[in-house]
């Protein structure tokens, strides 16, 4: 019975992760984005803890704790500090309008559902159904990176993509080995710091965070 309940709980959390991915696409304010991103990390960590408990895999607890620490507290804080420092309070500027982005997002979800169908057939893990959600989270993060102009929102899209990858690892194989997990966590932390410096540099050089401005780097022909 506990098994049945954890499957339901895990599916429920998967649905919430999917929901937060869409919320990231829909949110117009940068602070709102950070809050949603933190929630996504929270659901992710809760989901891995449930998987760890149900499948009795110790190292997944460590991953869950790391996710909680990094993606719910540290990364949002770093980004928050960055946003404050850069004084970006304006609304997020999407390249494609938001309802259209949402529709593309729904199409991506259907696409990933079909793409993961063979894996779902073969896998025996109880998390196999959430794989489609994991893949759609990756694709939605990708979509967010593509459709946003500003560097900070693209970074959040990137981090959401990483969330999706982590979730995919948990649902496809009960998580990566601990060494890999630790490496990825460190990577993400470093990446966020580098992004911070990078974004700051873009700002001081171009006086804007709009990446379309960088097209001016081309030589005049």
């Amino acid at each position: 019975m506990t098994h049945g309940i954890s499957i339901q709980l895990n599916n429920f959390l998967a649905a919430f992760i999917l929901l937060t991915s869409f919320a990231l696409l829909a949110q117009r304010r940068i602070y709102g984005l950070l809050v949603i991103f933190a929630w996504q990390g929270f659901f992710l960590s809760l989901s891995s803890a449930i998987v760890a408990y149900t499948a009795d895999i110790r190292h997944l607890y460590v991953s869950a704790a790391l996710t909680l620490l990094l993606k719910v507290i540290v990364l949002p804080y770093i980004l928050y500090a960055l946003i404050n420092k850069l004084n970006i309070f304006r609304e997020v500027e999407p390249l494609v309008n938001i309802p259209t982005t949402m529709l593309i997002g729904v199409a991506l979800v259907i696409f990933s559902y079909h793409l993961t169908a063979p894996v779902r057939e073969l896998s025996t893990l109880f998390t196999r159904t959430t794989l489609a959600v994991a893949l759609s989270t990756v694709l939605l993060g990708f979509l967010m990176m593509i459709t946003r102009k500003k560097a900070v929102t693209q970074v959040i899209g990137f981090l959401a993509m990483e969330n999706g990858l982590f979730f995919a690892a948990t649902s496809a194989t009960y998580g990566m080995p601990l060494v890999v997990e630790l490496g990825v966590a460190l990577d993400i932390l470093i990446a966020a710091l580098i992004f911070g410096i990078f974004i700051f540099q873009i700002r001081t050089t171009f006086d804007t965070l709009d990446l379309t401005e960088m097209e001016k780097l081309k030589e005049d022909s």
Binding site: A15, L18, V106, A132, V133
Partner: peptide
Amino acid sequence: VPEFLGTAFLLATLGMLSHFMLE
């Protein structure tokens, strides 16, 4: 308002999708 109701439509669609995907 279109965005608000678009969100409602999206949620309902996601509900339908997750019925197939997760259940």
